[in-house]
Simulated assay, not measured.
Amino acid sequence: ALLDPNGGAGCGIDARVLEHFGVKVIEINAEVGYPEHAIDTDGIDPASGRHMLLRVARATARERAHFGVAFDYDADRGNLVLPGHTEEAIIPPQKVATFNIALALTRRMLRRKSGKPLAVVMSDSTSLASERVGRSFGAEVVYVETGEINVVTRMHQLRSEGYDVPVGVEGANGGTIFETSTCRDGLQAALSAALAESEPEVSEAWLLHAGVPDPNGCEPGEPIPLSRLVASIPANPNVSLRLTAPPLPHAVVKKRLEAYFADRLWPELQGRFESFRFVNFEGTTVSAERTGEETGGWRVELRAPDRAAFVFVRGSRTESGIWRMILDADDEGDFQELLPRARTMFDTVSLG
């Protein structure tokens, strides 16, 4: 594996941990305090206009590594790439989250001994593709507000209620909490990718579960390339937008969003969907009502008999006027219909 700690907290130590578990590591950009590129790796390099992770994918190909991982500065997130020379080699964070759910639940399916009900915890901005994979294993999918502490806390609560909870994710950044870990960890994302190639029985079981019976001509027991596994992971059309607005109380913006959607957008969309509902995420609770300062995540969820979509909006608690919008849909046509309408909705309500 190729590791890029980018001068951050993972320099040296993450490579040693991976090597302890039998992974051969090539480390680049590993001088503490001297980052070679922007600290947030999941974005566009302003100098080149290309994705920040493209250089990592190219280095991975140059070194003939099986995969690459680029850490953010405190190493709690690990962005995965395959070897390649185009942006197609970059694995989007939402797909990393779904990948980790798929492999974690496959291992549970093969090795599970307890009769406890299965559950997976996901943050409010996680793609519906992750939900589909979780439910395909019979797991109950439980949502929380964005924030790793909310994911960890809810996982702990569910275990105390008698559930088996092998994994929790924050889909928007690919952050994953495995088993009884108490925080997301980019190193564990790297180990998950390494395990995928070193456990062919798990990979074969996932491909069969996903309806891909022939793992690219591999003989039983042979390692299945990570690229093949990644290609088998479902992914929705999904976009994350950073938006700006005049400083307004979060409660005002959300109230306006709900009124605009019900009055203006739903009449245009009800030919594609059967129903919608507004959902609020506050800490570990999910409700139709908001409480307190009303600064949690907000979603409008749209349902049809065979598909779903959502528009997620959450305002920053530290930067006034900064908002994040995420749009996700099972169907490409729904996504294309929703995207411009969602942008117009936010721009209109934020300006009053």
Rank of each mutant, 00 (worst) to 15 (best):
L118K: 06
A119E: 03
V121T: 03
M122I: 15
S123H: 08
S123V: 11
D124Q: 13
S125E: 10
S127Y: 02
L128F: 12
S130N: 06
S130G: 15
R132G: 00
G134L: 02
G134A: 11
S136H: 00
S136N: 03
S136D: 01
F137G: 01
A139R: 02
V142Y: 00
Y143W: 15
Y143Q: 13
E145A: 15
E145Y: 09
G147M: 00
I149Y: 11
N150L: 03
V151I: 11
T153M: 11
T153H: 12
M155E: 02
Q157S: 14
L158P: 05
D164V: 10
D164C: 11
V167S: 04
V167K: 04
G168C: 01
G168Y: 01
E170I: 15
A172F: 09
N173K: 08
T176E: 02
I177F: 05
I177W: 01
T180I: 14
S181E: 13
T182R: 12
T182V: 14
Q188L: 15
Q188S: 13
Q188G: 09
A189W: 06
A189P: 08
L191E: 09
L191Q: 10
L191G: 01
S192D: 11
S192C: 15
A193Y: 00
S198K: 14
E201P: 03
S203F: 09
S203R: 07
E204Q: 12
A205Y: 02
W206C: 04
W206H: 05
H209W: 11
H209T: 06
V212C: 14
C218A: 14
E219Y: 10
E219S: 13
P220V: 10
P220Q: 07
G221N: 09
G221L: 09
E222F: 10
